[in-house]
Design a protein around this nucleic acid. Structure first.
Length: 228
DNA sequence: TGCCAGGCCGGGT
DNA sequence: ACCCGGCATGGC
């Protein structure tokens, strides 16, 4: 795969050139094309995956989701009805299964109470949806924004560990930068385009698996070799 | 074998 | 306002 040749920087000199983000998008778009993200066949599957992937490798999340499908549980009503302990066993492969079962229950409760359908829940305006998600125990900013962006098609940019590490390695931010600050950099320096946000976050995850890790110091084919 | 993965919470300082 | 331990399986 493609690793990053950058050496750790860990400090930002000043506000980045706004065109750097457009440039970043163009580089990765040229390299990867349409991302096809988030993996998931339905908004519910996307939302469930967003919770299950918390600090967890996606390969394990896939196993858990496949298991839920196999048992016909990828359904809002079924998830609302199932015993939490049984749900935990079904998602065992994704790790943290007890706490994640509780978090899924919390999410399902939020989505099922006061709404006619998942579509109605996800269809409300971005600020309302995000607030409700953030008030749900077990849903933090990244999970909330992942659901807003990829399940509800709201124009909001998702920040994750890869995003932080890549921007740090390239000297755009320092390690004290907050989630909101990093999100602001993307949203203030890019046009508010849902498809662009979806793809760019996906690209960062694609390369983040291998790129800009301290343990993977060298590879000449990193698409961000000369960025910014 | 040991380290890590697309976080988040709750308690302590 | 930070800092840290806990949560857990499966892949390399």
């Amino acid at each position: 795969m493609s690793f990053c040749t950058k050496t750790p920087q860990g400090k930002k000199s000043s506000a980045p050139d706004p065109s750097a983000f457009v440039h970043l998008y163009r580089i990765l778009k040229d390299r990867f094309g349409p991302s096809g993200w988030w993996p998931g066949e339905s908004p519910l599957e996307v939302a469930v995956g967003a919770v299950l992937t918390q600090n967890t490798a996606w390969i394990n999340v896939e196993k858990a989701i496949d298991n839920l499908k196999k048992h016909g549980m990828l359904d809002l009503g079924k998830l609302a009805a199932i015993d939490q302990g049984e749900l935990a066993q079904l998602i065992r492969a994704s790790g943290y299964y007890n706490i994640k079962a509780r978090r899924l229950k919390n999410l399902v409760s939020a989505a099922a109470s006061g709404y006619d359908s998942l579509e109605a829940f996800l269809g409300q305006d971005l600020n309302s949806l995000r607030e409700i998600l953030l008030q749900t125990n077990g849903i933090g900013k990244e999970t909330a924004d992942s659901i807003c962006c990829y399940a509800a098609d709201k124009t909001i940019f998702v920040v994750d560990a890869y995003t932080k590490r890549i921007l740090m390695r390239h000297g755009i931010i320092d390690n004290s930068s907050t989630y909101d600050q990093i999100q602001g950099l993307f949203q203030q320096n890019l046009p508010p385009d849902l498809g662009l946000y979806k793809d760019l976050h996906a690209y960062l995850v694609f390369i983040g698996k291998d790129c800009c890790r301290p343990s993977n110091p060298r590879c000449g084919t990193c698409p961000l070799h000369s960025w910014p």
